[in-house]
Protein backbone atom coordinates (compact mmCIF):
# COMPACT_ATOMS: atom_id res chain seq x y z
CA UNK A 1 0.00 0.00 0.00
CA UNK A 2 1.69 3.18 -1.18
CA UNK A 3 0.81 6.10 1.02
CA UNK A 4 2.12 9.11 -0.81
CA UNK A 5 0.05 12.12 -1.59
CA UNK A 6 1.38 11.83 -5.10
CA UNK A 7 2.97 14.98 -6.42
CA UNK A 8 1.20 16.62 -9.32
CA UNK A 9 3.53 18.67 -11.50
CA UNK A 10 2.42 20.88 -14.36
CA UNK A 11 4.04 23.68 -16.32
CA UNK A 12 2.75 26.88 -17.85
CA UNK A 13 4.09 30.22 -19.03
CA UNK A 14 3.17 33.68 -17.81
CA UNK A 15 4.86 37.02 -18.66
CA UNK A 16 7.97 35.24 -19.87
CA UNK A 17 8.27 33.18 -16.70
CA UNK A 18 8.12 29.39 -16.82
CA UNK A 19 5.93 28.34 -13.91
CA UNK A 20 6.19 24.83 -12.50
CA UNK A 21 3.21 24.10 -10.25
CA UNK A 22 3.85 21.54 -7.53
CA UNK A 23 1.08 20.13 -5.38
CA UNK A 24 1.45 17.07 -3.16
CA UNK A 25 4.43 15.50 -1.40
CA UNK A 26 7.93 16.66 -2.25
CA UNK A 27 9.91 13.59 -1.24
CA UNK A 28 12.21 11.08 -2.86
CA UNK A 29 9.31 9.88 -5.06
CA UNK A 30 9.06 13.33 -6.68
CA UNK A 31 12.50 13.35 -8.29
CA UNK A 32 11.62 12.27 -11.82
CA UNK A 33 8.57 14.52 -12.11
CA UNK A 34 10.35 17.65 -10.90
CA UNK A 35 13.42 17.03 -13.04
CA UNK A 36 11.31 16.30 -16.12
CA UNK A 37 9.32 19.51 -15.69
CA UNK A 38 12.48 21.54 -15.25
CA UNK A 39 14.10 19.98 -18.33
CA UNK A 40 10.95 20.59 -20.34
CA UNK A 41 10.83 24.33 -19.61
CA UNK A 42 14.59 24.64 -20.05
CA UNK A 43 14.51 22.95 -23.45
CA UNK A 44 11.92 25.55 -24.46
CA UNK A 45 14.43 28.24 -23.56
CA UNK A 46 13.09 29.43 -20.19
CA UNK A 47 15.28 32.11 -18.60
CA UNK A 48 13.09 32.68 -15.57
CA UNK A 49 11.77 29.69 -13.64
CA UNK A 50 9.24 29.79 -10.81
CA UNK A 51 8.61 26.75 -8.61
CA UNK A 52 5.08 27.44 -7.46
CA UNK A 53 4.17 25.35 -4.41
CA UNK A 54 0.61 24.90 -3.21
CA UNK A 55 1.13 25.18 0.55
CA UNK A 56 2.43 21.60 0.34
CA UNK A 57 2.00 19.69 3.56
CA UNK A 58 5.04 17.45 3.26
CA UNK A 59 8.48 18.42 2.00
CA UNK A 60 11.40 16.45 3.43
CA UNK A 61 15.17 16.41 3.17
CA UNK A 62 15.06 14.11 0.13
CA UNK A 63 12.75 16.62 -1.56
CA UNK A 64 15.09 19.46 -0.65
CA UNK A 65 17.94 17.46 -2.21
CA UNK A 66 15.99 17.36 -5.50
CA UNK A 67 15.59 21.14 -5.35
CA UNK A 68 19.31 21.58 -4.70
CA UNK A 69 19.83 19.55 -7.86
CA UNK A 70 17.60 22.02 -9.73
CA UNK A 71 19.57 24.96 -8.28
CA UNK A 72 22.77 23.33 -9.57
CA UNK A 73 21.36 23.17 -13.09
CA UNK A 74 19.84 26.65 -12.92
CA UNK A 75 23.27 28.04 -12.01
CA UNK A 76 24.90 26.09 -14.85
CA UNK A 77 22.25 27.23 -17.34
CA UNK A 78 22.40 30.84 -16.11
CA UNK A 79 18.66 30.99 -15.42
CA UNK A 80 16.92 32.81 -12.59
CA UNK A 81 14.98 30.76 -10.07
CA UNK A 82 12.29 31.78 -7.58
CA UNK A 83 9.88 29.87 -5.36
CA UNK A 84 6.39 30.79 -4.14
CA UNK A 85 3.46 29.30 -2.27
CA UNK A 86 5.44 27.71 0.56
CA UNK A 87 3.88 27.54 4.02
CA UNK A 88 5.65 29.68 6.65
CA UNK A 89 7.25 26.51 8.06
CA UNK A 90 8.78 25.48 4.77
CA UNK A 91 9.86 29.05 4.01
CA UNK A 92 11.83 28.82 7.25
CA UNK A 93 13.28 25.42 6.26
CA UNK A 94 14.35 26.76 2.84
CA UNK A 95 16.15 29.65 4.53
CA UNK A 96 17.66 27.29 7.08
CA UNK A 97 19.25 24.98 4.51
CA UNK A 98 20.48 27.94 2.46
CA UNK A 99 18.24 27.52 -0.57
CA UNK A 100 17.22 31.17 -0.16
CA UNK A 101 20.71 32.16 -1.34
CA UNK A 102 19.93 30.69 -4.75
CA UNK A 103 16.22 31.28 -5.17
CA UNK A 104 14.17 34.25 -4.01
CA UNK A 105 11.25 33.20 -1.81
CA UNK A 106 7.90 34.89 -2.45
CA UNK A 107 4.56 34.47 -0.70
CA UNK A 108 2.61 33.76 -3.86
CA UNK A 109 2.75 33.60 -7.62
CA UNK A 110 1.68 37.24 -8.15
CA UNK A 111 4.44 38.56 -5.92
CA UNK A 112 7.01 36.40 -7.72
CA UNK A 113 5.85 37.47 -11.20
CA UNK A 114 5.92 41.14 -10.20
CA UNK A 115 9.48 40.75 -8.96
CA UNK A 116 10.59 39.02 -12.18
CA UNK A 117 9.02 41.91 -14.14
CA UNK A 118 10.98 44.50 -12.13
CA UNK A 119 14.23 42.65 -12.82
CA UNK A 120 13.55 42.24 -16.53
Amino acid sequence: MMLEDELTVSTRECDGVAIIDLSGDVTTFAEEKINNAYHEVTSKGARHVLLNFRQNDYINSAGIAILIGIVTEVTRNEQKLAVSGLSPHFQKIFRMVGLAQYAEIYQDEEEALAAFKRQA
Binding site: S61, A65, I68, G69, T72, M96, V97, Q101, Y102
Partner: peptide, 22 residues
Protein backbone atom coordinates in the same frame (compact mmCIF):
# COMPACT_ATOMS: atom_id res chain seq x y z
CA UNK B 1 27.60 23.12 2.82
CA UNK B 2 24.83 24.08 0.41
CA UNK B 3 27.45 25.83 -1.75
CA UNK B 4 29.42 22.61 -2.06
CA UNK B 5 26.27 20.65 -2.83
CA UNK B 6 25.16 23.13 -5.48
CA UNK B 7 28.66 23.01 -6.99
CA UNK B 8 28.14 19.27 -7.28
CA UNK B 9 30.88 18.32 -4.82
CA UNK B 10 28.98 15.39 -3.42
CA UNK B 11 25.48 14.15 -2.84
CA UNK B 12 22.70 16.63 -2.28
CA UNK B 13 21.24 14.13 0.20
CA UNK B 14 22.23 13.75 3.82
CA UNK B 15 20.55 16.79 5.25
CA UNK B 16 18.18 15.02 7.58
CA UNK B 17 20.32 15.21 10.70
CA UNK B 18 21.25 18.79 9.92
CA UNK B 19 17.58 19.79 9.76
CA UNK B 20 16.87 17.89 12.96
CA UNK B 21 19.64 19.60 14.90
CA UNK B 22 18.44 23.04 13.80
Amino acid sequence: SIGEKVAGQGSARGMGLLLISQ
